[in-house]
Design a protein around this nucleic acid. Structure first.
Lengths: 226, 226
DNA sequence: GGCCAGCGTCAAGATGACGTCAAGACCTGT
DNA sequence: ACAGGTCTTGACGTCATCTTGACGCTGGCC
């Protein structure tokens, strides 16, 4: 049983979606504006988000940008805007799919199934936990410990940890890391990597100047070794 | 760099897609019918498939069904059929996205980015791995081992290893090697070869003075023998 | 035996990438 | 409006890597 968060200010649409989703055995959560949506997302961990772009308070796009700051939950954008630019923007901000209103319910349900199917076996719900001799990183709970002492990581730092630890020991190229963490257009800003790798080492390495987990492969990329 | 397989029988569409994909640094493979597409997929491992539904031989839907039998590669369906049933069918058969023709190129490119982003990071890397009795060279991961002990190679050394091991046992001429590693204008700087061949042997040969893998063919070039 | 061309070796200097720091911009909640 | 935390941006020292040149060795040829 999966949980789906519906973010839309139109009660009629919300009702239609809720009925259809419940009929297909999903749990449904509702937020009528962007602020509430973000609030819900920090407290709950739905398996998918249906996000309307036309919200009363925040722009749907900002909601998307912000939620991608701390979550990799699959997002399907619903929007009345048909323009190519809007679609490109939303997709590049991290939306998994973009459906224009009015939409066929059956199609949307199929797209939801598709998105859930692809979602890498639990990015949120099944909290990934990485542990080493000195470290404990709970990706789901956003909790980090160094030698038992809790450490606070910022959203960007979490995103870096997330992509670096996805395949332990594997090399992540600079461009890939930048795109994953900051977005598609940032693939040349290697400054950021220097700053944030230093930050991660300061917070997560016993001896920041002699890193054992967060390593640099000069000219190529970075890797996390357990 | 990712490889994308375009399956479509319309040469005009294939050409448009190929141009746009190459401009965005993708390698492009083409299949004009379903049979060829399935054939290619058993031999190569593209990172994403663009699949037209209207093919001359097999129905695109059957292609999709069959390829899902042995592959989890992301598939974006392109189709002139707008009906909801068609979309639902394709999506439920395992398509990751469904785009109706005519489509905006920018939108499609954004959807490709979105699909690649979601695909588990591991599936993308085409890791060539070269092994001998004493050596292990993982070109994708930039990891090298000599008798089980990890060895660190610099970027230039990796480029040399890359070109030398591309065709094991084959002779690579000095000029070709220099051009591949340092650039087109360096084809006379055979100094570099001397310096870096020595470096490679020091790091990757059990007995650097009696090389068994990285050999020199005086006056002609170099070769890697497994 | 002596000469030459090409290869192997070495080390010093130049270069560029990385690590570090701090000031300012930005955003958020009070 | 303010205070706290976070992200961005630029400058700078440091280090690994690359470049460059000098020298010794070897094998072929006269």
């Amino acid at each position: 049983m999966t949980t789906i968060l519906v973010v839309d200010d139109d009660p009629a649409i919300v009702r239609t979606l809720a009925i259809n989703l419940r009929a297909r055995d999903h749990r449904v959560q509702v937020a009528h504006d962007g602020r509430t949506a973000l609030q819900v997302l920090t407290e709950e961990t739905p398996d998918l988000v249906l996000l309307d772009l036309g919200l009363p308070d925040l722009d749907g796009v900002s909601v998307l940008r912000r939620l991608r700051g701390f979550s990799t939950v699959p997002v399907i954008v619903l929007s009345a805007r048909h323009s190519s630019d809007d679609k490109v923007e939303a997709l590049d901000l991290g939306a998994n799919d973009y459906v224009t209103k009015p939409f066929g319910v059956e199609e949307l349900m199929a797209r939801i199934r598709a998105a859930l199917r692809q979602s890498p076996a639990g990015t949120l719900t099944e909290g990934r936990v990485v542990t080493t001799a000195t470290l404990r990183l709970d990706l789901g709970e956003h909790a980090a410990e160094l030698n038992g002492a809790p450490v606070h990581l910022t959203p960007t730092e979490w995103r870096m940890v997330d992509t670096l630890t996805r395949r332990p020991g594997a090399l992540v190229r600079q461009g890939d890391l930048l795109r994953e963490v900051w977005g598609p257009s940032y693939d040349k800003e290697s400054n950021y990597l220097r700053v944030f790798m230093a930050q991660l080492r300061r917070k997560l390495e016993v001896e920041p100047s002699r890193p054992r987990h967060f390593l640099t492969e000069p000219g190529v990329g970075h890797r996390f070794v357990p």
